[in-house]
């Protein structure tokens, strides 16, 4: 993760990619750095996360990172970006807004779907390459909250998008510059997943697609990982419904906790569900590990209270503890989550 300055964060819907992108931007800003968090889907997810009013289309400071760093945020509006681009070559003046109201801008980007993506990735590239007056990069890192896994490769595959566009002209040559940055070690694509079957399947598919398109995977970030409380040796049996209720009852009674059979039954049922979840997570982890394409892995805990601003800092700290922002991420580390090893070959790949 160390060489990259453009961090593209994707993930299946519902995996929390915007949250992870924000935590990553905070983590990378830790210790006096400056990062930019870019949102491209027009949902104002960053503003909701940081509890601020909707972001305008401009870079503005949104958070202070531990150790004096700073996170700025930019909500790119693709229609505004297109108008901005036209302005550079053609003087549209106020008419630009009228065109937008008429739907002309949306129409143009629909005619050539690649145009929108070229503009958005182009904006990210410009931020990565921008220099201060003293020649230093304006941002130590740029984190892009990208479209979900289903769309991310076509979003980043500017080469393909260029086929939609005219064979020459200003946007074409800009796109060539974007291709160069996205395919260089400056860029890493991180995939956020839950340790569940469907998100892991999509993650593995996305890693393959990224490789085929010549894009570099960064880390797989397992999000919302919950703690494992059961001893490893009890997991398989409990997941199969075998829990020694009498022993639990006796142990609790010895600690002065006398519970009715109903309550014991309830605890056993909860334990079975817990074990099934731990087992499913272990299967999911094994599938990730078995994939040759799987890069370094990071893990983030599920925050029971939900993700508020404090929670974001907590997640950023967890990322830092796993090597983000400092030394390179440790390979295949086992994080705070499940340690339950799959000893059998039950970690099958579909």
């Amino acid at each position: 993760m160390s060489a990259a300055r453009l961090h593209v964060v994707t993930g299946k819907g519902g995996t929390g990619k915007t949250t992870v992108a924000a935590a990553l931007a905070l983590a990378l800003a830790t210790g006096g750095k400056r990062t930019l968090l870019i949102e491209v889907e027009g949902r104002q997810g960053i503003a909701q996360l940081f509890d601020t009013p909707p972001l305008p289309y401009e870079e503005r400071k949104i958070a202070v990172a531990p150790g004096g760093g700073e996170v700025r945020a930019l909500a790119v509006d693709s229609e505004a970006a297109l108008l901005e681009y036209f302005e550079m070559f053609y003087r549209l003046g106020m008419a630009g807004h009228a065109l937008r109201r008429m739907g002309a801008i949306e129409f143009a980007t629909t005619l050539a779907p690649g145009l929108r993506d070229v503009l958005l990735t182009g904006k990210a590239k410009e931020c990565v390459n921008r220099r201060d007056a003293d020649g230093r990069p304006a941002y130590d890192a740029v984190v892009l909250d990208a479209p979900p896994t289903g769309r991310v490769v076509s979003f980043l595959d500017v080469t393909k998008a260029m086929a939609d566009l005219a064979k020459s002209g200003p946007i074409h040559s800009q796109a060539e510059g974007v291709v160069e940055v996205l395919h260089s070690p400056l860029t890493a694509v991180h995939v956020v997943t839950l340790l569940e079957e469907l998100p892991v399947t999509e993650t593995l598919e996305t890693l393959d697609e990224l490789a085929a398109a010549g894009l570099r995977p960064g880390a797989v970030i397992a999000n919302q990982v919950r703690p494992q409380w059961l001893p490893d040796r009890s997991v398989a049996a409990a997941a199969g419904g075998r829990v020694d209720a009498a022993r639990i009852r006796a142990s609790l009674a010895s600690a002065g906790l006398d519970l009715t059979p109903d309550v014991i039954d309830g605890l056993v049922a909860e334990t079975v569900e817990h074990a099934q979840r731990v087992h499913a997570e272990a299967v999911a982890l094994a599938r990730l590990d078995a994939s040759s394409a799987a890069p370094a892995r990071l893990e983030l805990p599920r925050l029971i209270g939900g993700v508020d601003l404090g929670g974001l800092y907590e997640l950023a700290e967890t990322l830092c503890a796993q090597g983000v922002g400092g030394s390179a991420a440790r390979e295949r580390k086992s994080g705070p989550g499940p340690g339950y090893p799959l000893t059998t070959s039950s970690g099958t790949r579909s």
């Binding site: 053609y90 008419a95 065109l99 050539a112």
Partner: peptide, 19 residues
């Protein structure tokens, strides 16, 4: 309302996305 700007815009669009 949009005057000559629209003609320009149309030209820009066709330059970019191809005639």
């Amino acid at each position: 309302l949009v005057g000559g700007a629209f003609t320009l815009f149309a030209k820009a669009v066709s330059t970019i996305i191809g005639g």
